[in-house]
């Protein structure tokens, strides 16, 4: 059991002929992800790594009606349009890798996805991986192993850092996903916690947050009320000053909102184990499981 994606997931790659799209199509195929089609407007009839290219998602779906998930590598200024296209075709999971999408566009497609009950993972995310089954993302696959720990994060490389320590300590992952580093993202910590709580294949969840916004505080409130499985949390950016964006568009402390201390306090109050260093994750899990 897993969340969002598994071996039955049938994937379309939007922006498949671009440099990133092509490179990661190969990597995902090597991992065993079932990619059926790709799109790049104006390039139908071509092939990438043996995968047929279509002009649009709808046309690909005519030939492969079983497609139910998309991964988007389209450049920022065209990414909102690509997302609308995926939602319009009724896809339930959209992994939106692209960084630097204008925030007004993000608010609109996130609202649209909410209305139709689709999940947008991202934007500005490494994607989702269910180890051993499906990789709908750009993460280095070798640091992930199948197992029973759920992993959710706002950061890419920090996810790999924690996944690597988990794997090394013998804790595999049920599913790992990045919710994205932007101020506005589709799927939230709360959405993911809800899915992991319901998933029989997950025993505990590791949550990697960072400064900015109040997604971690919202997660804390939700954990207190609705989550029975253990949650271990790490918050990056304790040393970040106010008012400065730390790389991710969403990582900024504004006024009293978004501080690491506030998030840590909220999560501790909710009963989560908050660790000081990523390396402490193994010990924390060993105590709990």
């Amino acid at each position: 059991m897993t969340i969002l994606v598994d071996k039955t997931t049938k994937v379309i790659v939007q922006g498949i002929t671009g440099r990133e799209g092509h490179f990661h199509t190969k990597a995902m195929l090597d991992y065993g992800t079932a990619i059926l089609a790709g799109t790049t407007p104006g390039k139908s009839g071509q092939e990438v790594e043996g995968i047929p290219v279509f002009d649009s998602v709808v046309e690909a779906k005519k030939q492969f009606p079983e497609i139910n998930a998309s991964i988007i590598f389209v450049p920022a200024r065209f990414a909102a349009d690509a997302t609308y296209e995926a939602l319009d075709a009724g896809l339930k999971v959209v992994s939106l890798i692209t960084e630097h999408i204008p925030v007004h566009d993000e608010m609109r497609f996130v609202e649209l996805a909410r209305r139709q009950g689709s999940y947008i993972v991202g934007p500005n995310t490494p994607g989702i991986i269910t180890p051993g089954q499906c990789k709908l993302g750009i993460m280095p696959a070798h640091v992930f192993k199948p197992g029973r720990v759920g992993l959710i994060s706002r950061s890419g490389t920090l996810t790999y850092e924690v996944a690597a320590s988990l794997t090394e300590a013998g804790f595999g992952q049920s599913t790992a996903l990045g919710i994205g580093g932007d101020p506005i993202v589709g799927m939230s910590f709360v959405d993911a916690l809800k899915l992991f709580e319901a998933d029989e294949g997950t025993d505990a969840t590791v949550l990697i947050g960072e400064i900015g916004g109040s997604a971690e505080e919202a997660a804390a409130t939700f954990i207190k009320k609705h989550i029975s499985k253990p949650v271990i949390a790490y918050i990056a950016g304790r040393t970040a000053p106010k008012g400065k964006r730390m790389g991710h568009a969403g990582a900024i402390v504004s006024g009293q909102t978004g501080t690491a201390d506030g998030k840590i306090k909220a999560l501790r109050n909710a009963g989560a184990t908050v660790i000081d260093r990523p390396i402490d994750v193994d010990e924390a899990l060993q105590k709990i499981l």
């Binding site: 994060s153 490389t157 920090l158 580093g181 970040a240 730390m246 790389g247």
Partner: peptide, 23 residues
């Protein structure tokens, strides 16, 4: 490489008593 990792790196330096000059 990666915003989250760099933040975590700053925090690790601080954890051992150092002070980051930049991100």
């Amino acid at each position: 490489n990666g915003a989250g990792l760099v933040m975590a790196t700053m925090d690790a330096v601080k954890y051992y008593g150092g002070a980051p000059a930049n991100f």
